[in-house]
């Protein structure tokens, strides 16, 4: 395996890790209006991810920086081409992060309502946009000979409209419903009592929709970019998603959650398999596509970064696993202190 191939895998690994982890944060955020009957409920929900959402979000920062370091051309074309989509994503992530930290710092109902709305929007918008973005990365975008994204000739929204094609929108709905299901099963794993029941029931409903959408999307992806590995990964994703819903239904939420993790890992991996060896295909001319060859950094840079990754990734995984171990307890209504924090 060559270094640029290894770095394609590392970038994929970081995005997969990001979606597994922040995926359930998005789901928890979206669940507030559905599961939270009162403020204590909502605080229970937010506290299931309280200590970890921030480290989960960090995965995307590291994924983005690694993409920059290993494939600068990819980073440059992608981030400037997906301008408005990323701008909306940033706004949403800012809203969510601020709302988590500040909602408890005021007592009025209006204060909490405002920040709750920010959490819901700040979770749903990225959950949708990540799917739109990744579907378009796999599908390809109009890159010209200089690898510059040339959208429709409409000021402001020209590039955005290119992204909102049926395949891209379907991808968005898949991640939206998949992350929602992931979050709901996470809630049933991390809470107890009535709220746990509600989460489990809703997970079955949303999960059914997610299964349907994901099946269509994965088949569509396979038709466009067929490979044995892609087929195998999609099949595992589909089976484990259905199994997760069954396990959720029979109240084995630990197994259900693990199966959701498998689903997200395999589903996202199948997209990277479909993409390889491109990193951003051009829909204008195949010769204009960005690949792991023409988008990558020099051999020396990749070598330096490989040593860093070899040393740091296991360490990061170790201490983050320990963090999840420390906060393994279920959160109950009784755990929430009466005084606002």
């Amino acid at each position: 395996m060559q270094l640029n191939e290894i770095w394609f895998v590392i970038v994929a690994f970081l995005f997969v890790g990001y979606f597994v982890l922040d995926g359930f944060d998005f789901g928890v955020g979206m669940s507030l209006p559905f599961l939270g009957k009162d403020d204590t409920d909502r605080r229970v929900l937010i506290n299931t991810i309280g200590p970890v959402w921030d480290l989960n979000e960090t995965w995307v920062i590291v994924a983005g920086a690694s993409l920059f370091a290993a494939f600068p051309e990819w980073y440059a074309s992608l981030f400037s081409g997906f301008y408005l989509a990323l701008f909306l994503m940033l706004m949403a992530l800012i809203a969510r992060g601020v709302a988590f930290e500040y909602r408890g710092k005021g007592n009025s109902a209006k204060w909490k309502k405002t920040f709750d709305a920010m959490i819901v929007a700040g979770s749903a918008i990225p959950a949708l946009l990540w799917g739109v973005a990744f579907a378009n990365i796999v599908h390809g975008v109009p890159l010209n000979a200089d690898h510059i994204f040339v959208g429709y000739d409409i000021p402001l929204i020209g590039n955005l409209l290119v992204l909102l094609n049926p395949y891209g929108l379907l991808g968005g709905l898949v991640t939206l419903t998949l992350f929602f299901t992931h979050g709901l099963i996470f809630i049933s794993l991390k809470t107890d009592g009535e709220i746990k029941e509600r989460a489990s029931i809703l997970a079955t409903k949303v999960g059914a929709v997610a299964t349907l959408l994901a099946a269509v999307f994965l088949v569509w992806t396979l038709i466009d970019n067929f490979s044995i590995a892609g087929l195998a990964l999609s099949a595992i994703a589909a089976v484990s998603l259905i199994a997760a819903l069954v396990m959720n239904f029979v109240k084995r939420e630990g197994i259900a959650f693990s199966l959701m993790v498998v689903t997200i890992i395999t589903a996202i991996s199948s997209l990277f398999v479909a993409l390889f060896p491109n990193v951003l295909p051009s829909t204008i001319d195949e010769a204009f596509s960005l690949t792991i060859e023409n988008a990558s950094s020099s051999g020396y840079t990749l070598q330096v970064m490989s040593w860093v990754a070899l040393f740091m990734v296991p360490l990061v995984l170790a201490y983050q696993t320990w963090t999840y171990w420390v906060f393994r307890k279920r959160i109950r209504r009784e755990n929430i202190p009466a005084n606002a924090h």
Binding site: V62, A65, F68, A69, A70, V304, M305, V308
Partner: peptide, 11 residues
Amino acid sequence: FGAPLAMEGLF
């Protein structure tokens, strides 16, 4: 420029 940024993330 990407290298120190990625190191910042990982470290």
